[in-house]
Amino acid sequence: MARMTMIEAIRSAMDVAMGRDERVVVFGEDVGYFGGVFRCTAGLQQKYGRSRCFDTPISELGIVGVAIGMAAYGLKPCVEIQFADYVYPAYDQIVSEAARLRYRSAGQFTCPIVIRMPTGGGIFGGQTHSQSPEALFTHVSGLKVVVPSNPRDAKGLLISAIEDPDPVIFLEPKRLYNGPFDGHHDRPVTPWSKHEAGEVAEGHYTVPLGKAEVRRQGSAVTVLAYGTMVYVAQAAAEERGIDAEIIDLRTLLPLDLDAIATSVQKTGRCVVLHEATLTSGFGAELAALVQEHCFWHLEAPVQRVTGWDTPYPHAQEWDYFPGPRRVGEALVAAMEA
């Protein structure tokens, strides 16, 4: 066991995967010699050589496009998009190509690639370094979508993603890279070294895709969250003294519906959280599934707390971010309905 930040855990996952399987290659903008703007790939080029970890031109389309070709050849590329906000030029390659290759070729060609990208806000990144585009990927047949919330999960999920036979979108909440963050931006930052999930095994292990984890047992209301919002939910529940059951979804596609339904059928109330904008967000899918599968158990309307339907602002970051105050209000509303 070692103490790791989420950055170190992600790096360790790629290190372990590259060490075990020569077909794993890692590349992206500033990823090679320098080791990535967030340092997630630091040392990998030195350890595995330039042909397995290298810098690319600034072309997200190119990064994903060549990764698809490499996967068709038989490699397992794990590529980095510097910020999720920059993934859009690659969207056609992801949606029309990576996601459908297995299907349209009847399994002759497959696309085992991982596309890693820092996601979410909380770092004063403005509209080009703060977005949460997960719903653009959960809407696509053939993709898997993962959002870890701590170093231990991040490593195990990333190894699972790299070993997975299908394309995986791996969204890394950048505000969690160095420590858990509960939305209280005015308080001192807690490092991962002081958190139990910062203890990470150094070798190979996996956390399965498609399995949620209950972060806090409770009986009054179910909170469905992922990434940074897991910690915001915990803070809000503690502050309001509400016995919430907090589910960290970890994988959005495929979704652990059993875990969700079991919990909501028990509590009869549900609050859905994400940083991304509200309209057509992943929360809409969650709310719809909850009413389909738990309608006769519900005692209150399903609440959603999300980013507002505006571009992610700069100066107004903390008015935009769905922090513990707004989450707490939703918990109270769910309880009082």
Partner: peptide, 11 residues
């Protein structure tokens, strides 16, 4: 661009 990726993999 995928053809280029396949060729890079071969290299």
């Amino acid at each position: 661009v995928q053809a280029v990726g396949w060729a890079m993999a071969s290299a």
